[in-house]
Design a protein around this nucleic acid. Structure first.
Lengths: 338, 338
DNA sequence: TTGAAAGCGCTAACAA
DNA sequence: TTGTTAGCGCTTTCAA
């Protein structure tokens, strides 16, 4: 399994190994003749440049760390896919790690990334406190936060306009005739949730609606918790004709609870999600939702990070992408009475 | 952004840098005194060992390549999650790449992995021909194939018992009273599909059933193609009471087409899938299916690969895991008449 | 128990 | 245009 090195090629070509290096790097300080000869030889000998050795002297591994809470989450796996593509297009590869939403692991992973000399890291923070716990590392390695909106924080991030997304969601439901819209699943301690809830509240105010909430008291957001919350909610008589779920996962939980209870969507109540995870487009689910432009987020995250790496500037950039409404079949006109 | 090196620590501790190296590596050739002192100093100075430099001399990066066709596929993202966890538990990290089912990219990625000196690679092959096209690399770098069953090939792989899974699927439908079972979505050119179809055929033979097929003529398997196929299928009068879909994605497409046509599942026809992707457990979908034990596959893949790396043995291992039936709500007793 | 020195495969400055 | 050499940060002989 011993690989061919630059020296082996040099010996075979009867030149010094720096000449080989020049041929490979496309340096102009070499005759076209020898270059051709050497390149040819490299092919024949099956030479593959040792990226690790190069990284040592170049002080750049062309490796980017991607720390997600869980690739298995459909939102993040989509992000991961596009991040890989975009990074590769720019000559970088990805080291993927899952923090499992564990702040300790998150810290360990940063340590690990630094040891691995990655050129930068993209982080899907496990919570709003990640910024604090990772503070010591942030000026040791270029970092871009992604997904979770870290408001007022002097670090680069890319995120969707959560406030705006919630706002247009309410506008949409209002345009369908709904006047009593329940906001479902707001979770304390998540900046993203706060922003969405604020957007909802603002839209209600502007449209003259009375905000109603069903808050998520669980420590995180998942279909299961959404289901449990909704099950409880549905024991009470509804004072709303539409539910705006804080996330698609919440919406999926609501769907399940509604089905069990014989509540029809959208005939009895309209249901609007947020995120547009892959699941939401599945047959039988077909959830109307606010889209996070994941491909664009991935692009922006990689670009921001590479900018940061290349410019060595100490500054930061917040990129907020525009959310869009995806109309499917879970929202309908407001029923006459309930 | 300059990182502290072993030399900096040595200078501060007033020892040679090989002494620092010893302290860090837990070598016994050092007094407990100096070790403590140095370790303490490392902490204070925020020293993080440079893994790249270590890799050069150790000739091991502790990095594993993971080449998937698409992390965004729910089956693969689940695999990726568990592979990361298992690899990390054993001191390795993952470089993730997507081949997008493109054989050229697959080749390039192997080249890339070799250049990066990964200790081994796990490959979800883009097709049965991957084995051939990647042939030249397979003895340059330890490789384990995963997911797609490469029958009769002298390379290590981990896979599920596809034949067996299809067999128990038919048995299950038979036990519900079904006698006319359509096998849906078999695709030419996929070994996995061949094995499943053979298992189906064998079970039919053993149970005295007449096999019926609806083959997938598209170049790959997806919900969309499953839907198109099913839409076409449903224009004809059914001669079956149950459909065994070759994959869960096919089954999801069938569900969509059935819904459009007013065909109820499982009242009118029973539907059985294969894979147990995350989608299948979603509310409203709740597909009965044959499970691929993904966590176990991930474990086995990592373990097999590390075995191969450590033992330097030229042999290969095929690990075939046992599939299991996951009962949900898409299969029911055979209706009296149709 | 510690230090000195070689070397991993490569790039780049300097010489020829 | 080509060769020589130092050095990236580390591990590991070999000497002291």
């Amino acid at each position: 399994m011993k690989n061919v090195t630059i020296k082996d090629v040099a010996k075979a070509a009867n030149v010094s190994y720096s000449t080989v290096s020049r041929a490979l790097s496309g340096s102009p300080e070499i005759s076209a003749d020898t270059r051709e000869r050497i390149l040819q030889l490299c092919k024949e000998m099956n030479y593959t440049a040792n990226t690790v050795a190069r990284a040592m002297v170049m002080k750049s591994t062309k490796l980017l760390g991607l720390i997600l809470t869980d690739v298995n989450n459909p939102f993040m796996s989509e992000l991961a896919y596009h991040i890989d593509r975009q990074a590769r297009a720019r000559g970088y590869n990805i080291i993927l790690c899952n923090s499992s939403r564990n702040p300790d692991q998150e810290r360990e992973l940063f340590e690990l990334m630094i040891g691995r000399q990655v050129d930068g890291v993209m982080l899907f923070p496990s919570g709003p406190e990640s910024y604090e716990t990772l503070r010591p590392y942030l000026d040791r390695i270029p970092t871009v936060f992604i997904g979770e909106n870290l408001r007022e924080v002097p670090e680069s991030y890319v995120s969707v306009g959560n406030y705006r997304g919630a706002y247009i969601g309410v506008e949409y439901l209002h345009s369908l005739g709904h006047r009593d819209i329940l906001y479902f699943g707001r979770r304390r301690g998540s900046t993203t949730h706060q922003l969405r809830a604020e957007g909802y509240a603002a839209a209600c105010r502007d449209l003259g609606l009375v905000p109603q909430y069903c808050n998520n008291t669980f420590p995180l957001t998942s279909i299961k918790y959404g289901y449990q919350l909704a099950k409880q909610l549905f024991t009470q008589k509804p004072a709303y004709t539409a539910i705006f779920a804080a996330t698609d996962t919440n919406a999926l939980g609501i769907m399940q609870a509604a089905e069990e209870r014989g509540i029809r969507i959208p005939e009895d109540i309209s249901l609007l999600g947020f995120d547009n995870i892959r699941d939401s487009g599945l047959p039988r689910i077909d959830l109307t939702t606010i889209e996070q432009p994941k491909k664009m987020m991935a692009s922006m995250a990689v670009d921001s990070l590479l900018d940061k790496i290349q410019s060595e500037l100490a500054g930061y950039v917040h990129r907020i992408l525009t959310p869009a409404l995806i109309e499917r079949s879970s929202c309908g006109p407001c029923p006459k009475r309930y």
